[in-house]
Amino acid sequence: MDNVFTLIRIFIFPGLLFLSILAFLFEWIDRKAYARFQNRIGPLYAGPSGILQPIADFIKLMGKEDITPRYVDTLIFNNAPIFAVAIPFFASLYLPLDGSPILSSFEGDVVLLLTLMTLYTIIVFIAGWASTNRFSTVGAARAILQFLAYEIPMFISVASVAVYVGSTSLTYISMNQPVPMILLQPIGFIVFIISMQAELERIPFDIPEAESEIVAGWLTEYCGPKLAFLRFAEDLRLVFCSGLATAIFLAGGSGPILPPVVWFVLKMIFIVLLSSYIRSLFARFRIDQMVSGCWRYLIPLSILQLILTRFVEVGLRWL
């Protein structure tokens, strides 16, 4: 019985099926909010208010012809979409969606999650490189360059929370916040959100797939089911990143009256809306501006947050 329960947790709720539904739902929320910020309607026809549009897009792409260009490295090119979906799925299983993690929780799983995000960037790079298209190559190079800029401030901003709470277990961090960390560490939260925007390749940091410059960046050669998987992977990463932000900065599923899973999802939606808002505010930066901006502003800010954390911790102990 216990095994069946675990399997249900992994595959149905709050596991893979629930995560997939969340991924499609978040894409819809993001598109709808982005449209409203731009005074448009957004998806409208598939389902009520177009809520099924992401699923319709996915099915449509799955039905398209699957083309593998002649000069690509077939093995990497064909397998990259599978890894791209698998990594965020696996990482999301550590999110404490309903108060406890789906898979398991151990000391140091935050480090594991951040490493998995790194791995995703590597997948992006080799997928773009294997495409052997000039636009893909430039996009892949930009992805790895951008990764060098945003990953460090992101790690430090997460680390300052871990230092404050005194644990590197995501579940422990999310459940043991006296007040949500966004209030205690606002600078860290801002740094995390900006880095998240870069991690998800969204405006102003959609440099690796800058449409008007390098067509679709590292995605240029992908089409049909492979593109469907890659886009699904992007939605999953949106779920994962907003989940991570929720668990670390918004005290996870803790909240009055409603069950933890509802709180968790609501807080994730808040993060998604924030991300759409940022997306509609800026023009795309150039890669050199982005890298120098991250090193010049984000990293000092995140280190400042780490130092402040230390002070707050010591100060609280004195009190």
Binding site: A33, A35, R36, F37, Q38, N39, R40, I41, L44, Y277, S280, L281
Partner: peptide, 16 residues
């Protein structure tokens, strides 16, 4: 920033 935020509560200008 203000302009974009205001539009969240405005009717979309799109005509169906």
């Amino acid at each position: 920033i203000r302009e974009v935020f205001k539009h969240l509560f405005k009717r979309p200008v799109t005509v169906k």
